[in-house]
Design a binder for these strands. Sequence first.
DNA 1: ACCTGAACACCGTTCAAGT
DNA 2: ACCTGAACACCGTTCAAGT
Lengths: 222, 222
Amino acid sequence: MLNRNRIVTAAVELIEREGADAVSMRRIAAELGVGVMSLYNHVPSKAALLDAVAEDVLSRIGFTDDPSAHWTDRVRIQARAFRRIAHHYPRSTMVVVSRQLGSTAGLLPVERALATLRDAGFDGREAVRMLRMFIAYVVGSLLREVGVTPTFAPVRAGAAIADVDPALFPVVSELRPHLDSCDHDEEFEFGLELLVQAMAVRADARADRGTGEPTGRGGARR
Amino acid sequence: MLNRNRIVTAAVELIEREGADAVSMRRIAAELGVGVMSLYNHVPSKAALLDAVAEDVLSRIGFTDDPSAHWTDRVRIQARAFRRIAHHYPRSTMVVVSRQLGSTAGLLPVERALATLRDAGFDGREAVRMLRMFIAYVVGSLLREVGVTPTFAPVRAGAAIADVDPALFPVVSELRPHLDSCDHDEEFEFGLELLVQAMAVRADARADRGTGEPTGRGGARR
DNA sequence: ACCTGAACACCGTTCAAGT
DNA sequence: ACCTGAACACCGTTCAAGT
């Protein structure tokens, strides 16, 4: 029997198998062995289907939050959990990122993250700020890893820019070896660590001013 | 007379006016008062045209790098310049971000940024790392500002999630006021400052170890 | 309630024909 | 070299008809 869930799953599979461009209502219907119009009994439009795909992928994030752990470790773990689904559904990641979700699908991660930041001693305003900054970093990183990021940085993996004029771009030419290779794990962890430590500094500053609980003391553990 | 540049410009204008979804070869041709197939004399395909759009927007970044300024200020200025085009071409920003560029179009910003980071005292490997981290943050921030970011964070501007169950999402409900509003300028500057300061700490650590020039001394100025 | 085919108004791109 | 219309193989979605 046809239902919304089967349609969404088929869409995710098709995206991962052939890319987001390959997705069409007709293709998905064929995949499921039904007429195109049957889909519309369960999904109002293609746009709504893609929203559902985004929510579905997001809901697959596997969390294991340990409230007794140091908040810096909890932040690290949450960031990595987020990154993990992107690796599991690389081509769907772009879909997730390019859709403006309106539902509460992605709210659980937010709840967990904000709770962690509150435990770190940040007030509401700061916690939201920190979360937004963190998400910006994670989303930006995933876009690079998924291979969609603009060249101007982690230049396209492999050869590609063999033809850089050293006279016009001296530094880029000099650093070509470093620009050409990119260990995504290392790169992500580097930024993660830098952010966590920067956050710990703020948390400590708060504590030293006597505001909030001293939970965040001791800086970022390694 | 029809040429590549006129076509790209028309595409950018159409994207900004009606959104990326509205772009079709036929629409652009109509806009320019020519037959659809005329476009193919100057652009090999729609995909190539969108790549050209991305490059065009990127190349519009206005830079005024002052090598005599403190490197932290140069980083701030470059980040803001990048952000500014995204505000000028909000709907094209998603196109830029979702295309994998292969040309040297976006190489000038990279050159400038890497030169700045080298001046800060970072070695090649560190400079590239810092740049990648920075770009991740900036790209992620722009996606939020442009309104494309997944909900799970800067929940859709305005109402949208009035229906959050406080029992399921206590922290989210409590922080609703902060989640609902988002001053993009403030938010961006907050993360920018945090990153710059974190980078300054690393630069100082380098200098203290006696490596590189002491250019980065003194931490991040405000 | 669910499924469906025909039809409509669109796509991107190939090809052969024009100048 | 540049332009072009017709044609092909696709789209998403509406509608009326079936069960």
